[in-house]
């Protein structure tokens, strides 16, 4: 608890600058975070951008002091790199569709649950959230391997006649990725649902809407903001996936994150590695923004539809 004590001391020191204090005092309180974000978040990305515009070098990681768009040209004209980008987005889209569908359902189930059952459902979301990616990924291996538990069960039940390689393979990657991102989607949707008034759903049922109908007519339109946030978070994480494809994927399951890692740490080709990272970041940013607007517009159409 020494961490907490030390912290309390710092906060005490900050006390004179109470909340109603003038702008200057508030600024003083905000200064540490602003300085930190500028120094260790904004600055690194500027440097990243700079290095991605340097000439590649065979002697070092990049040719310092040079300017070149060659790294970008290299990436964008390489069939291999374009294939990696396509695979990343394919993985992102598939994982997002599955995750958001499951997440909406599960968030609704948590919202409707009560007491101990509700706590258990919430716990099942929070615990994986606070568990390292490594655990969340490798635990699937003994289950999905050709000699793993799932194959044993399916063979014993005569569903399969010979073992299927779920992992290392694409189905394993998707499953692992869905498992990793599901908690984020569920919580984003749940926090919107939990502000909703249940009697509105009862009113819909009372007026003749069946359960699925009342869900579609009343719950879904209100949950759209949560679903939009959940979708974007899920999509960003799945496109940028590293652990699941690296451990549960075959050699062909190569995402941009794996490629960047190997360019940076194995090939030591920083100009290509950083250029690739910048390209992916821009693509993700643009597609996430488009997705977010699309979902919210869809929500808007529901709002004013007949």
């Amino acid at each position: 608890m020494s961490a907490v004590d030390g912290l309390a001391g710092r906060v005490r020191a900050a006390a004179p600058f109470g909340t109603d204090a003038g702008v200057d005092r508030s600024l003083l309180l905000l200064f540490p975070l602003i300085a930190y974000e500028l120094l260790f978040f904004v600055a690194p990305f500027l440097i990243l951008l700079r290095i991605s515009l340097a000439e590649p070098s065979t002697a070092g990681a990049y040719a310092s002091g040079t300017w070149s768009i060659q790294p970008y040209v290299d990436v964008l004209t390489s069939e291999f790199f374009l294939g990696v980008i396509a695979y990343s987005f394919k993985l992102g889209v598939i994982s997002t569709v599955i995750t958001v569908a499951l997440g909406t359902f599960y968030a609704y189930a948590i919202w409707r649950a009560s007491g101990l059952y509700k706590s258990l459902l919430l716990f099942s979301i929070v615990l994986p959230l606070l568990t390292t990616l490594v655990i969340k990924t490798y635990a699937w291996l003994p289950l999905l391997a050709p000699t793993g538990t799932v194959n044993d069960l399916l063979l014993a039940a005569n569903v399969l006649s010979s073992p299927v390689q779920f992992a290392p393979n694409t189905p394993g990657v998707v499953l692992g990725e869905v498992y990793i991102v599901l908690p984020y989607a569920v919580l984003a949707i749940y926090s919107v649902l939990s502000t909703m008034d249940w009697t509105v759903v009862e009113a819909a049922r009372d007026l003749g809407a069946s359960r699925p109908r009342s869900f579609a007519e009343v719950v879904l339109p209100q949950a759209i903001p949560g679903i939009a946030v959940g979708t974007v978070v899920t999509f960003a994480w799945s496109v940028g996936a590293y652990a699941a494809p690296a451990l549960l994927g075959a050699g062909s399951d190569r995402t941009f994150a794996i490629e960047v890692e190997s360019q940076m740490l194995s090939n030591f080709n920083w100009s290509v590695g950083t250029a690739f990272a910048v390209i992916m970041l821009v693509l993700m940013f643009v597609s996430s923004l488009a997705l977010f607007n699309l979902l919210n517009r869809w929500g808007g159409e529901v709002e004013y539809g007949a």
Binding site: D197, D206, P221
Partner: peptide
């Protein structure tokens, strides 16, 4: 179930659908 009964309820909170217009 409620949706198959010809009863209709006015709720304490009125439970108007927030994402629909008054006419809807």
């Amino acid at each position: 179930p409620a949706y198959r009964r010809n009863t209709s309820m006015v709720f304490q909170s009125w439970a108007l659908f927030p994402y629909k217009s008054v006419r809807e």
